[in-house]
Write a protein that binds this DNA or RNA. Structure first.
Length: 131
DNA sequence: TTTCTAACA
DNA sequence: TGTTAGGA
């Protein structure tokens, strides 16, 4: 099938499909004219890529683990035991990310709720722009 | 009409 | 990632 059909069947944009290929996640064959030809199995590959991306993994990581992932019918499962440590490491990375954002939010909350010493500056600013 | 590559307001 | 130009 060509890119348009794969896009329709997976919900991925054609742009994304070309991007996945550039990242080594897909390797469609080509017609003499250069059009990409995808295998039926690529539909599942794209779905797996989508769920892994949604899980916060980057394409480089996905490229490595994709061959080891197995479709359970429900979702994906690690097909190779040696995959677990890597997946757990990714989970830890996401946790660090969440912690960093939580800290940023706390700091911002502090700024938002802080009471200014006086409003002189602000009032002068408002007066200036409202004329 | 569909797809391709390359490049960016 | 979207979008667009200019071709095939």
């Amino acid at each position: 099938m060509r890119i348009g059909e794969l896009a329709k069947r997976t919900g991925a944009s054609e742009r994304s499909l070309r991007y996945y290929e550039a990242q080594g996640l897909l390797s469609p064959s080509r017609t003499p004219a250069g059009y990409r030809i995808y295998a039926e199995s690529d539909v599942d590959v794209v779905r797996h890529v989508q769920t892994l991306l949604a899980a916060g993994l980057n394409t480089a990581f996905i490229k490595e683990v994709l061959p080891c992932m197995v479709d359970t019918g429900e979702g994906l499962a690690p097909g190779c035991p040696e995959l677990l440590p890597h997946l757990q490491k990714e989970r830890a990375r996401i946790t660090m990310s969440i912690d960093g954002l939580a800290t940023a939010r706390t700091l911002l909350d502090g700024v938002i709720s802080a009471t200014p010493p006086d409003n002189t500056e602000y009032e002068a600013w408002v007066a200036r722009r409202t004329g």
